[in-house]
Write a protein that binds this DNA or RNA. Structure first.
Lengths: 348, 348
DNA sequence: AGTACTTTCGTGTTCGATAACGAATCTTTT
DNA sequence: AAAAGATTCGTTATCGAACACGAAAGTACT
């Protein structure tokens, strides 16, 4: 039961060597004979040795530094929530000699991501949290991080095999599937519209497309007869494109957006007096919540951005400071918010 | 900016005394002259001294022990979720020389709570997590804990002014209000039924009654014309009481239960072929979820039992080991689960 | 002034992991 | 076989807080 807390000296005694040698073995440092090494490793495997974190922390007079790479933000947008989580982690970790700083990039401009990435590498932090953009540039940065031996966590958008310490975010495919289910399950409509963002450089593509794939999967499986109109919009082209859409298809009453800017569509619909049967979007921006409460938007899918960044930094700290291996993937819940429960929603 | 991490020696130097004296002042130990004390206190106030947690942890060779007092449980009931949270905290905190053990009591039997409380006090733990029963007995135990100088957190049910370190749980009144809103808002029915538990000793009363108060508050404000039938049931009397209810009021189509055993009512309704317009209950027991998916229950209100106990123990550890003052109240979100989103719900 | 006693406070050791230092042992070279 | 060099590994100081120990300073009383 009471598995004794072994110290390094206990182990040394068990092995018939000194504490220094045990330490060398544990850290893979050189200067240990094969024989000693094997003996120590055998004992280490046998007992479940958990080093005293306090002693480690005290001995390592080191000051750790984590850097967060994520899009520049303004008040109340999605990325400001991410920043909230960072602030919380910062406060909590300052006592462990961990400081956190941020580098921002412009989500619309891949070059800014690349140069922000360079800046990140130059800082040589002890850990990094990054929000991906396109697959290629993200993998490129990931490669550089690995070369520089900087552990990193990815949040928000899953990137396959980037060598990250952990991914923290939603299962985008699944959330798209749920969006479709909620939108289409009990509706008799035969057409719907997908509001897509019209990015020149396609930087958001990974996440948006896997949400869309999940969405289409449901359609393929459950209601393959539905007609999907895709409209690519930017803030500038929104009016024109939607005017055209409703001129051509006046009966569309179902809509979904895979980005966080459903409020722009909602604004248009409200202004034009167009009532949708159902309209679903992502993320709990205050503007989105406003339209949800007013009934223009029917459902918002939340993905806990603040929790994501908080967890990401905690995972980095666990790994670098406390030598714990975090879970490879930490999926966030897929929160479904409606006018009913939005008031009582708390992101923890 | 870079506010230097002061050590006790830095402070000693600043004050012109030794580290020992500074330590004595900080811990309020005796043996310090008024003059020295004032000087040290002045400096301490001036700089924002945060002692090194690692050094504290290392120096304190103490082994901490927390005790959790909560109802005995069987597989898949509400309290088993509470236990899950405890297990998680246990794992996480074992490295800090914190061990956790549990004492259970029978929720139906107040005497067992009292004797479990005595046992708890005898153990003299460094912290305790308790689930209240009746107001009187809970306050009694709280008093004893205070006398024994054992910090404690209360979960699940708020108890006013018990002297707890922190309360972690839902705002029951509010959740009752939401239940009413969801049940009654868009319904044209004029009568409904409240399924109440028929406890001899009334041990659950605090929570259930504040949920009910919140529920009635909504009725008073928004639909005072509705007729509420109250039925007090136990597993034994359920059939008889409900038979009687539906004989007298065949048109009841709305129902709410404030405890976690809505599945018993659902089972009855399904067997009798009675279809409710809406049926709302509490807690995500597997049985409840089953009836939610089948459409017999329309909504379940989740209160994150595992997160509650996890947080409660973490708060105790923060306080006793890391000398941090936790928030006095930590409200849990009021999760609203329906057939739509139950599948994607994750309790974090 | 000297003894007895209390108050005040500095010093030294402890906690466990870490890594620099240098001693001891083993290997290679001339 | 001796010297030089390389490998292996034990010893020790360090990190910052805590607290016991006992030294120094202060007070009281004969």
């Amino acid at each position: 039961m009471e598995d004794k807390q072994y110290t390094i000296k206990d182990i040394a005694k068990l092995c018939g060597v000194s504490a220094g040698t045990v330490d060398r073995v544990m850290h893979g440092r050189s200067g240990v004979s094969q024989k000693s090494k094997e003996k120590v490793e055998a004992i280490l495997k046998e007992i479940d040795y958990k080093p005293n974190v306090f002693a480690i922390g005290l001995a390592a007079k080191k000051h750790y530094n984590m850097t967060c790479l994520f899009p520049e933000f303004s008040e109340n947008d999605y990325w400001s929530s991410v920043y909230e989580g960072i602030k919380r982690a910062k406060e909590e970790l300052s006592q462990y000699n961990i400081s956190i700083n941020c580098i921002h990039f412009n989500y619309e401009d891949i070059d800014s991501f690349t140069s922000a990435g360079k800046q990140l590498i130059e800082q040589k932090p002890d850990g990094a949290m990054i929000v991906p953009t396109t697959l290629y540039t993200t993998l490129q940065l990931a490669e550089e991080l690995k070369n520089a031996d900087i552990p990193f966590t990815i949040i928000d958008v899953a990137v396959k095999d980037a060598g990250e310490l952990t991914y923290i975010g939603q299962d985008s495919f699944r959330s798209g599937y749920i969006a479709a289910k909620t939108l289409l399950r009990t509706s008799s409509n035969t057409e719907m519209v997908m509001f897509l963002s019209d990015n020149r450089n396609g930087s958001l593509e990974i996440q948006m497309s896997s949400r869309r794939e999940g969405f289409m999967e449901y359609i393929r499986k459950e209601c393959s007869n539905i007609v999907v109109h895709e409209v690519k919009i930017t803030p500038e082209t929104l009016h024109e494109k939607l005017d055209k859409l409703f001129a051509e298809h006046p009966n569309v009453k179902l809509g979904v957006s895979f980005n966080s800017r459903i409020y722009r569509v909602a604004k248009y619909l409200e202004e034009k007096g167009i009532a949708f049967e159902r309209l679903i979007g992502y993320d709990l921006l205050p503007q989105n919540i406003e339209y949800l409460k007013r009934g223009v938007v029917n459902m918002l899918i939340g993905q806990r951005p603040a929790l994501q960044s908080y967890r990401a930094i905690k995972a980095l700290a666990d790994f670098t400071v406390f030598k714990k291996q975090p879970e490879k993937i930490q999926y966030m819940p897929i929160d479904l918010l409606t006018a009913d429960n939005i008031e009582y929603y708390i992101e923890i």
